[in-house]
């Protein structure tokens, strides 16, 4: 017992401070942007844990640093988009042997100027990708053969189009298809889709789950930056796609249209109920 709580019940507070403190207003709910930030961090942790769990006997190799031409990386605490792409690719390749692509145009660079190889991002280079991901080669190869729609490709191109709501299914199908067909290239967009954590938060806000593959293409919608964001479960041939505005990932999805479901190989998308 301290002298402060000897004879007086703890609940009795002659100073009035207890009541005063209890009456102060609550700070309110956690801000949406912080929620998205923490969810993105937890997703990243979850991916790392999943990758570790699947590779008990392999020694993870660090990824080759991606070359970047003709585009700036946001400064400060933001992670370069190239790293984010590798992070996603690593997790995805372990699970499904899939890949990721981002076609960007927000910075105004043209496709030719932005074409740069992104480290191990070479179509069909599953073994290379798997080694840095620390993935199981046999499962990765099997998954890759099961899902031939997207190979182990990490690419970023310039020259994104102007989107319309009506054409979202067709555009989204093209985004996924080009992830397989286009040659490897590198481009990191300026603008709202140049921040990796923000793009990741955008994907999460749209329902992407740990282990999913994603493909993002940056373009414009009307006068503003926009992106077609697609993701799919490992091994699935159906992708979910949205058209989103520049605030996606800032505590909101900023969805302009979607979701639509697109098949990576089929010739048309269907609206998701």
């Amino acid at each position: 017992m301290s002298p402060h709580d000897g004879d007086v019940p703890f609940e009795d507070d002659p100073t009035g401070m207890r009541a005063l403190l209890a009456g102060l207003p609550d700070p309110g709910p956690m801000p949406d942007d912080l929620v998205a930030r923490i969810q993105a961090s937890l997703l990243s942790e979850s991916r790392s844990r999943a990758a570790d769990a699947q590779t008990p006997h392999s020694i993870p190799q660090p990824p080759t640093a991606p070359a970047r031409h003709g585009a700036s990386i946001p400064a400060g605490r933001k992670r370069p988009l190239g790293q984010w792409i590798f992070g996603l690719a690593a997790a995805g390749l372990v699970v499904a042997g899939g890949g990721y692509a981002l076609r960007g145009a927000a910075g105004g660079s043209d496709a030719a100027g932005g074409a740069v190889s992104m480290g191990s991002a070479e179509a069909g280079s599953h073994s290379t990708s798997t080694s840095f991901a620390g993935g199981d080669a046999s499962s990765s190869t099997k998954a890759a053969s099961d899902d031939a729609t997207v190979q182990g490709t990490v690419q970023v191109d310039g020259g994104g189009p102007t989107y319309t709501v009506k054409d979202l299914p067709e555009e989204a199908e093209g985004v996924v298809a080009r992830a397989q067909d286009s040659p490897p290239s590198g481009f990191t967009p300026d603008g709202p889709f140049g921040d990796a954590e923000r793009v990741e938060a955008c994907l999460i806000s749209l329902g992407m789950r740990p282990g999913d593959r994603s493909v993002v293409q940056v373009g414009t919608y009307g006068e503003r930056a926009a992106a077609i964001v697609t993701y799919a479960e490992p091994g699935a041939s159906t992708w979910t796609a949205y058209l989103v505005g520049p605030s996606c990932g800032l505590g909101t999805s900023d969805a302009i249209a979607g979701p639509v479901s697109v098949s990576a190989k089929a010739s048309g998308g269907t609206n998701t109920p």
Binding site: H4, D13, G16, R18, A19, L21
Partner: peptide
């Protein structure tokens, strides 16, 4: 208890006394 006492002293030091409200 110590914190409440110290807090009360800090708040009332410049004359801006705080009247206890409902407990």
């Amino acid at each position: 208890s110590r914190g409440r006492t110290a807090l009360a002293a800090l708040i009332t030091r410049d004359g801006s006394a705080i009247a206890p409200t409902t407990d």
